[in-house]
C-alpha cells in the first residue's frame, strides 16, 4: 500500500511503473581504466606466479596424497589462473568504467560502483562526518584520486575512485564545507 502511493505518483496514463533510479550524472576519468588495469595486472600476476610455483613444487615432489585425476594435470592450475587473470585485466576495468558514476546534488552524494555486482549509494550531505581524499602510488602516476565520504555508519560510507585529482580535492573541500553547514546530529 505504501509502495502503490509512490507508484501512482510515478504512473502515467493509468499504467503504473515502478520507480527506478537513474544513473548518476558524471563518469569517472577514463584514466581510471588504466589504473584498474595496472592494479589487476599486479594482483593477478602475483597469483599467477604463486600458482606456477605451487604447480612446480607439486610436480617435483611427486606427492602421493593427491587424487589421481589431479596429479597428471598439475600445470592446469597456473594456466587456469592465468586465463582468469587475463580476462579480469581486459574485461573488468572497462566494465567498471561503464558502471562507475557519481553525482553530487544539492544535498545528496549519489554514487554507483561495482561491475559484476552493482551498488547504488545515497548519502545525504547533512549526515557526512568526514571527507577524505587519498592517492595511491598508481593514482599519483596517473593524476587520479579517491574520495571517501564517511558517515557514522560503515554501510553508509561511500568511496569514489578514479576522479581527476583536482576534481577530487575541490569536491572534498566543498562537501566538507557543506556538511558543516547542513549538519544535523542524527548520531
Amino acid at each position: 500500500m505504501d509502495v502503490t502511493a509512490v507508484r501512482r505518483h510515478q504512473s502515467d496514463g493509468g499504467r503504473p511503473h515502478p520507480p527506478r533510479l537513474r544513473p548518476p550524472a558524471n563518469r569517472v576519468s577514463p584514466r581510471a581504466i588504466a589504473h584498474w588495469m595496472i592494479e589487476y595486472l599486479l594482483l593477478w600476476g602475483l597469483a599467477f606466479g604463486l600458482s606456477w610455483g605451487v604447480a612446480a613444487w607439486i610436480a617435483d615432489s611427486r606427492w602421493s596424497g593427491l587424487p589421481g585425476w589431479l596429479s597428471g594435470h598439475v600445470w592446469w592450475i597456473p594456466v587456469a589462473v592465468g586465463a582468469a587473470g587475463l580476462l579480469m585485466v581486459t574485461v573488468a576495468p572497462v566494465w567498471r568504467y561503464r558502471v562507475h558514476r557519481w553525482e553530487v546534488s544539492a544535498d545528496v552524494v549519489y554514487t554507483r560502483t561495482g561491475w559484476f555486482s552493482r551498488e547504488w549509494l545515497l548519502v545525504p550531505v547533512s549526515r557526512i562526518q568526514t571527507v577524505d581524499t587519498e592517492q595511491g602510488w598508481i593514482e599519483r602516476m596517473l593524476g587520479l584520486a579517491t574520495i571517501e565520504v564517511n558517515t557514522a555508519s560503515h554501510t553508509g560510507s561511500s568511496e569514489v575512485s578514479g576522479l581527476p585529482a583536482g576534481v577530487a580535492t575541490a569536491l572534498a573541500g566543498e562537501l566538507a564545507h557543506r556538511a558543516h553547514d547542513l549538519r544535523d546530529d542524527a548520531t
Partner: peptide, 16 residues
C-alpha cells in the same frame, strides 16, 4: 527504490 523514497523522499526523488 519506492521504500527508500517513501522514507526519505528528498534524497531519492531527484535521482528517479
Amino acid at each position: 527504490v519506492a521504500f527508500a523514497a517513501k522514507i526519505t523522499p528528498g534524497w531519492v526523488a531527484p535521482f528517479l
